[in-house]
Amino acid sequence: MTTLLCEDLLGEDADVLVIEKIEFSPEAPEPGAEVRMVIGGVARQPVTDGAGLDVLVKMGQVKLHQERLDLYECIRAGSLAVEGLGPDGTIEPGPVTLTYTRTLKRDIPLGKFRVSIAGWNGGEGDELLALELTYESRK
């Protein structure tokens, strides 16, 4: 059995993206399967070029995966779909929905994982968002 849940929204009131909801599909992803995370919220100011996300996956104290993602490169590559883009292709102030799709590795061990995501806006580097997720895979 597998569970995936948003454990904590760590964002500040001053974050560029105020998260209002997070949904996962499927709710219980299996190793090797595609997982989709939909983040809905409101952009308080434009999300500028250079915005990015740091993703860290840990099992206990062991770091399993770490990557830095450029938000607009992900949009151009198709791994991140955005509802709420302005005419120039940037995320404008107002309602926004981010949909991130990824295929999980087949060789994921059984256990509990913590996924930390911290984002920053381009330009001055204001905090974009921050959240913690838990993924648990067990028999």
Rank of each mutant, 00 (worst) to 15 (best):
M1N: 06
T2H: 09
L4W: 01
L5D: 11
E7W: 07
D8F: 08
L9V: 08
L9G: 02
L9T: 07
L10I: 00
L10W: 00
G11E: 05
G11F: 00
D13I: 04
A14F: 00
D15E: 09
V16G: 00
E20F: 06
K21T: 14
I22F: 02
E23P: 00
F24P: 00
F24I: 03
S25H: 13
S25T: 11
P26T: 05
E27F: 11
E27K: 15
A28Q: 11
G32P: 05
V35H: 04
M37L: 09
I39Y: 03
G41N: 02
V42M: 11
A43Y: 07
R44C: 08
Q45E: 15
D49Y: 06
L53W: 05
D54I: 10
L56W: 10
M59R: 14
V62M: 13
K63L: 09
K63W: 03
Q66C: 08
L71H: 02
Y72W: 03
Y72I: 03
R76K: 10
R76W: 07
A77E: 14
G78P: 08
S79N: 12
L80K: 06
L80Q: 04
G84I: 07
G86D: 11
P87A: 14
P87N: 11
D88C: 06
G89V: 06
G89N: 04
T90F: 09
T90W: 06
I91Y: 07
G94H: 04
G94K: 05
L98H: 04
Y100E: 07
Y100N: 07
Y100S: 12
R106I: 04
R106W: 05
D107H: 06
D107E: 05
I108M: 05
G111N: 07
F113W: 11
R114K: 12
R114Q: 12
R114V: 09
N121G: 08
G123I: 07
D126K: 12
L128S: 04
L129F: 02
L133G: 05
Y135R: 01
Y135H: 00
K139N: 13
K139R: 15
